[in-house]
Amino acid sequence: MSEPRLEVKKTSKLFIGGAFPRSESGRSYVVSSAAGEFLCNAAWASRKDVRDAVVAARGAQPRWSTATAYNRGQVLYRVAELLEARRGQFVHEVRAAEGATARSAAAQVDAAIDRWVWYAGWSDKLAQVAGSSNPVAGPYFNFSVPEPTGVIGIVAPTDSALLGLVSVVAPVLAAGNTVVVLADEQRPIPAVSLTEVLATADVPAGVVNLLTGPADELVPVLAAHRDVDGLDLAGAEPVLAAAAEASGATNIKRISRGVAPGHDWRRDPGTARLLRFVETKTVWHPIGS
């Protein structure tokens, strides 16, 4: 019989601009499992962490939005590859976070991996499906293309720590946006682990930034930030979401409202989330000789 070995625990950190800082505030909060056991001390992100994350997302915008769609697709597919390789870890974490059965947790992780694959394939098809050549009544060539909205703040769903998170983040990335994600406050560990996957999956620094901490403190900061172009309030509870939506009017943010409790994230996602944070640009040019 070997000696019992003490497990090495991972410190839970934020993910900003490709780095893994602790919260600028130096604070943390306790994360427990569904069964009530201590899991970790998660970083308690501050207003300044929100600011830093937005700066990182804005800085990453030009490169990510102008990367070829083929390149973006490969990067997202790479995330699926790495996630598959760490499947066991995520099953374990989802189980601990949500109290799911092993079978249910495995199904969720599999669905999350497949969702990355689904959206990876969309990156170079979005413009073909959402764009158009428009037959105007005159001597003009006129076409429309979907372009990314820019920097999107995402409040991750609170009932699906991995699949729900992937379901809201991946489509927004596939469309060329960069994101600041607020993880499920009570179940942040799968999200934090996902950032470790993203960091090694060729996702450029700043494209995804993840914060952990109390939603009622951080969502208002994100919603009022004038350099955030859109808000996905998927996981925000109604009162918080309404206030965030109103606050987002400061710079006419595009708003995706909250998701009804009990939403089944395994459902076919369709294209709705892919199209939520795109801007149609229409270009005219005369046809002449």
């Binding site: 001597p139 003009y140 005369p286 046809i287 002449g288 000789s289």
Partner: peptide, 8 residues
Amino acid sequence: GVDQVGCE
């Protein structure tokens, strides 16, 4: 140059 459409 002269843009045909604009000119017409």
